[in-house]
Computed example of a mutant assay.
Amino acid sequence: MDLLSVSGVGFVEKNAVVLQAISFTQRRGQKLALAGESGAGKSTLLQVIAGLVQPSAGEVRVLGGRVRGPAETLVPGHPGVAYLSQQSELPHALRVGQVLRYANTRPASEAQALFELCRIDQLLLRRTDELSGGERQRVALARLLLGAPQLLLLDEPFSNLDRVHKRQLQAILAAVGEQLGITSLLVSHDPADALSWAEQILVLRRGQLVQQGPPEDVYRRPANEYTAGLFGDYNLVRGADRQALAPAAGRKSARKALLVRPEEFRLGPADGGGQDGTVRAVRFFGGYYELEVALPATTVRVRAETAAWVPGAAVGVSLAAGAGWEIQES
């Protein structure tokens, strides 16, 4: 039996369609991520799954039990499902230990181990209004975990955190899955979060599910330009440049563009195969350089490990083995 089953879920608000016939399942222990632009319906879908928003159509089941929305139950929410919002809502000006004690359903030893896992055992005597953003998020997470949920819904959990606290929370969430066996469903606006964490990514656009698959498939073989743009920079190679870089693919479907990620190009001397171009700009990004290269029919961005070329230099551009994906332009 699937832990989570979402079947034909739709939601209409003020005559605007927010979700349209969303269906998917999640196995116990499987890490799923929802991706999409702002307004795509990600948070609304998470709230429907949590039982905090009443769907206009379809149903959600957790371990076979139907999730009832706020129109059907006095207290919104579903047993075994925990929802961590962006705001890290905690009672104001109470001691952290008090807040956690009211929420606890675990034996004292388990609770203490959970506090240590969430790295908050040193915060128990602090008041909630004295916590930093990262500390509030960890306390809010521990509060939910004390209820022993089976499904943890994470709504942009890293959005208000600096890099240090974000890395810390990511490590804690990994431990939550491994040590406590809690299944998680993540919404994040940062593509790196979804790509590095999830086993499956679901892409939403205007309330519709437009692609679902493993992170590498979604990144390297996007269904459309919209999905490609969500997960990083890309180039669309057309016409003569496409014929020079991938002649076999060009013969198959010349009307479609070839989508190439910047790291999938290879640079070499001019007249060395592929397509010749001219370097227009070189930019340093810390761990790599990005070159802007003008080809006969288009300009592409190419990622390189060293600054071996300068603006104005002639360069040969080719594709890495297996690189390039035919795509229908938006």
Rank of each mutant, 00 (worst) to 15 (best):
248 A>I: 01
285 F>L: 15
191 P>Y: 09
275 Q>L: 06
197 W>H: 11
182 I>N: 14
192 A>E: 11
244 A>C: 01
211 Q>V: 07
222 P>T: 06
270 A>E: 13
213 G>P: 11
270 A>H: 14
297 A>R: 11
257 A>Q: 03
200 Q>L: 08
233 D>F: 15
246 A>R: 01
183 T>C: 14
256 K>C: 06
246 A>C: 07
209 L>D: 00
286 G>M: 14
241 D>E: 00
261 R>D: 00
256 K>Q: 10
192 A>F: 14
215 P>W: 08
253 S>Y: 15
220 R>T: 04
250 G>K: 05
250 G>C: 10
234 Y>N: 03
224 N>G: 10
195 L>N: 08
220 R>W: 13
289 Y>I: 01
245 L>F: 00
226 Y>L: 08
287 G>D: 13
237 V>Q: 01
285 F>G: 07
211 Q>P: 10
298 T>R: 10
192 A>W: 09
237 V>G: 03
263 E>N: 14
217 D>V: 07
242 R>E: 00
233 D>C: 13
236 L>N: 00
212 Q>D: 01
228 A>F: 10
290 E>P: 14
248 A>P: 02
237 V>M: 02
280 R>W: 06
282 V>S: 08
261 R>A: 00
296 P>V: 05
259 L>F: 08
282 V>W: 08
279 V>C: 11
262 P>F: 06
292 E>I: 13
268 G>R: 14
248 A>E: 08
291 L>G: 11
221 R>G: 05
194 A>I: 01
204 L>Y: 08
239 G>E: 01
200 Q>R: 12
219 Y>E: 01
272 G>Q: 15
199 E>Y: 03
260 V>W: 00
265 F>V: 08
264 E>V: 09
246 A>Q: 02
216 E>G: 00
288 Y>H: 13
260 V>N: 00
256 K>E: 06
294 A>W: 15
264 E>K: 12
281 A>W: 14
198 A>I: 06
252 K>D: 12
286 G>C: 12
189 H>L: 05
200 Q>F: 05
271 D>G: 07
248 A>Q: 05
194 A>T: 02
277 G>I: 03
204 L>I: 05
294 A>C: 11
202 L>E: 04
263 E>W: 15
288 Y>C: 05
227 T>R: 12
235 N>Y: 02
211 Q>N: 03
220 R>E: 14
280 R>I: 04
225 E>D: 11
205 R>C: 11
234 Y>S: 05
287 G>W: 10
289 Y>R: 10
290 E>I: 12
216 E>A: 03
260 V>L: 00
